[in-house]
């Protein structure tokens, strides 16, 4: 992301990792533009900076570039919000934002895939535990335990992972 932004023009890029003291960090750096995740709670802290009265105290002034609603919409769809100094050249904002958007899309796709993998793994674990519970309780094999859960899921119109979770929860309560 940082590299992509540097390529987009003569840009100094600084990354603020910690959310705490965001306002004071930004006040120190006096950036022309701040890019932040739309859903980052610290955005409300940035809002406060837009209220400072003296121009020199006002590093962030507006939500993206108001002259280009399509770009604003694209940014919001992608989950990026940008704050830029009033009067910053529109072509520079555009270049920086285009680069940021491309990277955000890629990053988001990766994040979604990672979450899907993690969820699948989590389900696998629950199903294995439920199989174990059934095998012990009824003295059946692993395959039989799985078949039993699959049948119950079909009859009840539920996912096999849901049935497994119910078995695990119930067995914990019954212990």
């Amino acid at each position: 992301m940082t590299d992509a932004l540097r390529q987009a023009g003569e840009t100094d890029v600084m990354v603020v990792r910690s959310d705490s003291r965001l306002a004071s960090r930004i006040a120190q750096m006096r950036p022309d533009m701040v890019l932040i995740d739309l859903a980052n709670p610290s955005r409300d802290t940035l809002e406060e900076l837009t209220l400072a009265s003296a121009p020199i105290d006002r590093p962030v002034a507006m939500f993206v570039d108001r002259s280009d609603p399509a770009l604003t919409r694209a940014a919001v769809e992608a989950g990026v919000s940008a704050y830029a100094v009033d009067g910053l050249r529109p072509d520079r904002i555009r270049a920086v934002l285009d680069a940021a958007l491309a990277r955000f899309h890629m990053f988001q796709k990766m994040r979604t895939e990672l979450e899907a993998t993690r969820a699948a793994l989590e389900q696998r674990k629950i199903i294995d535990r439920a199989k174990g519970v059934l095998m012990r309780a009824r003295g059946i094999t692993e395959d039989e335990a799985y078949a039993l859960m699959r049948r119950a899921a079909m009859e009840k119109g539920r996912k096999i992972a849901d049935v497994a979770a119910a078995i695990v929860t119930a067995s914990e309560l019954l212990q």
């Binding site: 739309l38 859903a39 980052n40 955005r43 940035l46 809002e47 939500f63 604003t72 919001v76 919000s81």
Partner: peptide
Amino acid sequence: RAANWSMLRDLLDLGR
């Protein structure tokens, strides 16, 4: 559900 007030305001502004 929004994560911050600015986001909620933007969602409303843009008709989401």
